[in-house]
Design a binder for these strands. Sequence first.
DNA 1: TCCAAATTTCAATAAAAAATGAAAATATTG
DNA 2: CAATATTTTCATTTTTTATTGAAATTTGGA
Lengths: 162, 162
Amino acid sequence: MAIQTETITEVETEVIDIFVRAAQVIGLAKSIGEIYGLLFIAEEPMSMDQIMAKLRISLGTASQGLKQLRAFKAVKAVYVPGKRKDYFTAESEFRKLMAGFFKEEVTPQLEITAERIEVLKPLLKNVSPDRARHYGSRIEKIERWQKNGLNLIDKVLKFINF
Amino acid sequence: MAIQTETITEVETEVIDIFVRAAQVIGLAKSIGEIYGLLFIAEEPMSMDQIMAKLRISLGTASQGLKQLRAFKAVKAVYVPGKRKDYFTAESEFRKLMAGFFKEEVTPQLEITAERIEVLKPLLKNVSPDRARHYGSRIEKIERWQKNGLNLIDKVLKFINF
DNA sequence: TCCAAATTTCAATAAAAAATGAAAATATTG
DNA sequence: CAATATTTTCATTTTTTATTGAAATTTGGA
């Protein structure tokens, strides 16, 4: 039996459902979860138009979704002999997905936080000594969180690697 | 000098900005970050109408935002002698915030995933043996991720506790 | 217990985010 | 190096999510 390209099966629907929920927890669009879920359960690499047909999503959504998923290293393009189109498969190593997500989404944010803390510090010169003392202790707290965050990501990634 | 209740200072603005960004990373509304940030930097507990006045947000947003933040244990109501209104302060222990977030947002999702996996398994009876084998191995993978996720949360919380 | 203050709820509205699809850009092959 | 297939981009539209504020409910004090 040939692979179904047009109709979506019950199993596919259920698997996609799981990944749509997961995507939403980490703040990613539904379509990202759909595409990843479909590729995760697929038996063969799929082209963009196969993905579009099965999920009934537009060209733009498919293209941008795959782009973002590649940025996370959650999907990769694979070569399929004799085919002109690009074909995609899901990366299914938990540690790689986590690493991609941290690297793309979390770490950049922690870096922005570090920059904002530096903007904040000189502002203490403009407030009363009492208030500066209070503010200073809060800012220190944010600084510790920021460092703890980076450290924690490191530890998590090491833990996942066994 | 009395605490400024109407005007927002530069320091407050910068601190709130940091928490608004942080809220958005974990998929929470801007107003949640604003309220938390304001309480985090405040020198004294604040009432709902003080929060509304400073942030220029509506009654509904303030009430619902505080409700959600209390659910996370990110803010708590404190008793202020002689006052009728509720007064709020920010929980500033990193580990408590993390624990609240995991407990409220991540763990329930992992539990839903476990349920969905059980829905998925019996569907394999309806597909060809070859396909069932492939699907089975994928489902096992999701199952492992689900368990790893719970385990990781546990480890992270233990790590944060020192 | 009654009254007013305080808070919550929720339907309507506003704002933000995601999806669409046509046009532009890029890549492939004969 | 055309001609065409494929992919990307992005202005517009649709959908989703957050906010508002008035009405309903709850709370606390006299």
